[in-house]
Structures are given as structure tokens and as C-alpha cells.
């Protein structure tokens, strides 16, 4: 299998508080991997380091595309997205006052071919490419059953649709690696199982690798083939769902907490 992402000894602290300490992680082409851990374990910080929102203090992040290797640790977020890493956010960050269609088609800007002149004078190049953008966006929206709501404002969508739209927006950037930050947060069991199916479908139909943060163990256990467990910023375990279930450190750190709660 081809390696897609390799993270080595990644560390970040905030004002003396270690948020992520010497974390290693590897992802291979086409995998669906879960990243779990109790609240405050550093999962979202880890995503923010991968996507350039935070600068790592130590360690390396490498993205493999074919034979090329890009190191991500000193790049800006938009640059990292251009290299093929897309993400969603734990607390949905849609462009709330833009239409559903605009949310998706702005995410296609990185492959935009026309420049400032066609934009100012609405030339033929502009017309042609704009039509293509709408077409591609509608195709993507169809996957999430959102094409009939294309002209609605994002903020007026129901919660579940907003989560879906955020995933559609991330896919519109044409990623090789998709990072999903608690996509099922706030969903009911029916919505969660619908989402689970969608995620599996995306993995099969788009040529990409998915890393999924989830607080809810059952979802991750059911669809991920491999998982990582983060606790107090340390990667305490890695393996298949069966191995993780039996790992005493995980039970102590994660399940233990849940059992007492």
C-alpha cells in the first residue's frame, strides 16, 4: 500500500500546557482511519496542526502524492488545502450567509483557470468556466440530496444538512486526504447511520483517504479499519477496532471514564 500521510514526533503546547506530545501517525491510500480519545485529548489540536491553523513546535508532517513528498509543517492553511488536504470543523463553519451552491463552488477556486481580466469583463472564458463550476457543484450536491436546496442560504438548512454541506464543500476542493472532525456530533442515531453510509460511499466513489475524529466509539468501531487513540496529547494505542477494544490503556483512559460517567 502507498503511504499518504506520515506524521513524526509532532508536538505543540499552549503556554506550557502540552496539547499534543510527540505524536506519530501513518495513513495509507484508501484507508478509513479513526482518531478517538476523551474530551480535551488533543484531537482537534492535531487536526489544526495538520491543516496549518497552528504551527507545530516539533516534528514533521509529510504528504505523499505519488512519488512526490510535501512537508506540511511550515505551510499556510490554503496551501495545505491546495496540496490535497480538506477538512470539516467540529463546530460547523459554513459561510452562513451564502447560498448552498456558493458554499460548494467557492471551494473549487483552487482549480480556477480564469484570471482577473475575465472576472472584470465577463468574457467568454468566464461564461464557460462559470457554467462548468455550477455543473460540477450540482453534481456534488446531488450526492448529499442537496441539489434542490442549492439557492437556499446555508444558515437556513437543518442541522444534518449543514453537516453534509460541510463535507460536500470539503470534497469540492478535490482532496486526496479528508479530515472529518466529529461529523456525527449532535446527530440522532438515525442521522448518524445515514452519515455512516454516506462516508463509506464517499470512500468507495472518491479516490481518497479519510481520517475521522469521533467521540462516539460505536460509529468509529463500525466503519474504521484502523484507529488511533489520543489521551492527554499522547498517542496511547493504535490498531484494529478489536485490538483497541481490548487494550487496557484505552479502557482505562477512555472506556473507564465512560463507564464511571
Amino acid at each position: 500500500m502507498n503511504k499518504v500521510l506520515s506524521v513524526q514526533k509532532l508536538s505543540k503546547s499552549f503556554g506550557g500546557l502540552a496539547a499534543v506530545t510527540s505524536v506519530n501517525l501513518e495513513l495509507f491510500q484508501g484507508e478509513l482511519v479513526g482518531l478517538i480519545g476523551p474530551n480535551g485529548a488533543g484531537k482537534t489540536t492535531f487536526f489544526n496542526l495538520l491543516t496549518g491553523i497552528y504551527m507545530p513546535e516539533k516534528g514533521s508532517i509529510e504528504l505523499h502524492r505519488g512519488s512526490e513528498v510535501f512537508s506540511l509543517q511550515k505551510r499556510k492553511p490554503h496551501d495545505i488545502c491546495r496540496l490535497g488536504v480538506a477538512r470539516t470543523f467540529q463546530n460547523i463553519r459554513l459561510f452562513r450567509d451564502l447560498s448552498v451552491l456558493d458554499n460548494v463552488r467557492t471551494a473549487m477556486n483552487k482549480n480556477l483557470k480564469y484570471g482577473l481580466f475575465p472576472a472584470l469583463f465577463h468574457t467568454g472564458t468566464y461564461q464557460k468556466e462559470e457554467e462548468e463550476l455550477v455543473e460540477k457543484s450540482m453534481e456534488l450536491l446531488k450526492i448529499f440530496d442537496l441539489e434542490s436546496k442549492a439557492s437556499e442560504l446555508a444558515k437556513n438548512l437543518p442541522y444534518g444538512d449543514q453537516r453534509h454541506l460541510e463535507i460536500a464543500r470539503a470534497l469540492a476542493t478535490d482532496p486526496v486526504l479528508l479530515l472529518l472532525d466529529e461529523p456525527a456530533a449532535g446527530m440522532n442515531p438515525a442521522e448518524t447511520s445515514q452519515l455512516t453510509r454516506t462516508i463509506s460511499w464517499i470512500r468507495e466513489n472518491f479516490d481518497l483517504t479519510i481520517l475521522l475524529i469521533e467521540h462516539d466509539m460505536s460509529l468509529v468501531m463500525s466503519i474504521c479499519e484502523r484507529m488511533y487513540v489520543l489521551d492527554y496529547g499522547l498517542m496511547i494505542a493504535e490498531g484494529t477496532p478489536e485490538m483497541i477494544k481490548k487494550d487496557p490503556r484505552v479502557i482505562k483512559a477512555y472506556l473507564g471514564e465512560d463507564l464511571h460517567a
Partner: peptide, 15 residues
């Protein structure tokens, strides 16, 4: 316009 709406989200989609 996406920058007005949410700069962090805009950067995350490659803007």
C-alpha cells in the same frame, strides 16, 4: 466574500 464570512473556513478550502 468568503473572507468576510469566515476567514478560517475560507483558508481551509484553499482560498
Amino acid at each position: 466574500i468568503t473572507l468576510r464570512e469566515d476567514e478560517i473556513a475560507a483558508e481551509s478550502i484553499g482560498i
